[in-house]
Design a protein around this nucleic acid. Structure first.
Length: 420
DNA sequence: TGACGTCAAGATCCG
DNA sequence: CGGATCTTGACGTCA
């Protein structure tokens, strides 16, 4: 059983994915972007290895316009050595990857041009997974598509178009229930009939539900039967509702108690769980730390080092609570730890607390800062205090200081993340 | 015709 | 001019 996250890695330097607009595409630009994105992907893989994250969805955007005629770069050959480096890391680390074409890749369309594009797009994803030398347990997750007023016909068309796919795609293809058209009942029927593994998505099911009398565990067991040996371990998508947004929106973070309630209900043979959540890797580590039967207390200390200034900024009370909680260096109170952190991050930071946290971080530079840096920092603080500058100006300044002094500790703090 | 979802690129505004 | 903030893009379906 592995827990993973999708596409982007938060708070880790040099993992950004770059893109460009179609009208600006040219060969050189695309080559530059691909080289950059592959380097970022390698850094994400390195991060996953260092944090024992064994499940990861690779962004479709690594190769911009990867399935479009606008992209004529022979990326597989041109970046052969970068691909091979990534392949070796994935292999030796035992990382299972996947890819997930979005809602606009529609294999069952009634428009043949759309179908052709969908097939090209699936081919791009399969080619990418081939390029990083992954086997057929590394899946491509697809939604069934549109309904066009006749679901039965639309499903038949899906099945027919499956026949157009080559082995590299077909052996990787898995299908997922969506929040609009194809419920888990529909997708299971399709999966059973055509021997396609089914990915169960709990939030989609709660929004687009075909049988309210059945719970998550029931559907997960039903889906389990669609996964054959060559497919690897069954995989599901897990996410939680963002209560402040419309139904189906992913939550900013995985609430650990709710997750554990779900997780502990799963049987002994648990599936791989892909988290779909805004804070990505942060929630993956949180969940992994909380289900670990034995983990070194060091793991929580590392997490605390990442969260502490964000917690201090939001809630000094909770900051003190965590410090007390972690005083016993032999204990491993992971669930309590994350409960306090979640509670803290829910508190809106007051102006005073924001300044307090910034001053704590400034403490790392008090001795080494140049006079003009000192002046600039306190000028920023004053401007923020008077409502003339946003907090982000202070954070940006402190981030630059951390970079200048190569302060690894601060550079891995979530305090600097967007949305914190 | 616009909403849907995503997030960086691009555009514009501000001092 | 640099930095902050707002808008656009790229995709297909459906109301």
């Amino acid at each position: 059983m592995s827990i993973g996250y999708a596409c982007l890695t938060m708070g880790v330097p040099n993992t950004s994915i770059k893109r460009c607009m179609l009208k600006n595409v040219n060969e050189q630009k695309l080559e530059d972007l691909i080289e950059h994105n592959l380097k970022s992907l390698e850094n994400m893989i390195d991060y996953n290895l260092n944090n024992e994250i064994k499940l990861f969805r690779i962004s479709s955007d690594i190769i911009p316009f990867g399935s479009s005629e606008a992209n004529t770069v022979l990326w597989h050959d041109l970046f052969n050595s970068q691909f091979h480096t990534i392949a070796e890391k994935i292999k030796t680390g035992g990382i299972r990857v996947s890819m997930h074409p979005g809602q606009y890749t529609v294999l069952n369309s009634s428009d043949s041009n759309v179908v052709k594009k969908a097939i090209d797009d699936l081919q791009y994803h399969a080619d990418f997974l081939d390029s990083i030398e992954t086997d057929y347990t590394n899946k491509i997750v697809l939604h069934v598509g549109g309904v066009y007023g006749d679901k039965e016909m639309a499903i038949k068309r899906f099945a027919k178009h499956l026949g157009y796919l080559n082995d590299s795609i077909k052996k990787r293809l898995v299908i997922e229930n969506d929040d609009r058209s194809y419920s888990i009942c529909d997708v299971l029927e399709l999966g059973r009939k055509y021997n396609i593994p089914v990915v169960y998505d709990n939030l989609h099911n709660s929004v687009n539900c075909c049988d309210v009398s059945k719970d998550d565990c029931y559907w997960i067991m039903e889906c389990a039967n669609t996964w054959n040996k060559g497919d690897g371990k069954q995989k599901i998508h897990y996410s939680q509702q963002d209560e402040s947004k419309k139904v189906g929106s992913h939550s900013p973070s995985i609430m650990i108690n709710e997750f554990l309630g779900f997780y502990n209900n799963l049987g002994d043979d648990k599936p791989d769980i892909m988290l779909e959540v805004k804070d990505k890797n942060l929630s993956a580590i949180k969940c992994m730390n909380c289900i670990a039967e034995r983990k070194k207390p060091k793991a929580l200390e590392v997490e605390w080092s990442r969260y502490k200034y964000a917690v201090l900024e939001h809630s000094p009370n909770d900051y003190v609570k965590v410090r007390n909680l972690l005083k016993d260096k032999k204990a491993y109170p992971a669930i309590e730890f994350y409960n306090i952190v979640e509670n803290a991050l829910n508190v809106c930071p007051s102006k005073g607390n924001s300044i307090n946290a910034a001053l704590h971080i400034w403490g790392y530079f008090r001795e080494v800062a140049e006079e003009r840096e000192k002046k600039a920092f306190f000028k920023n603080i004053e401007a923020f205090n008077e409502g003339l500058k946003p907090l982000s100006a202070i954070k940006k300044f402190l981030w630059k200081m951390a970079e200048k002094h190569n302060n690894e500790y601060l550079l891995s703090c979530y305090y600097f993340n967007k949305g914190f």
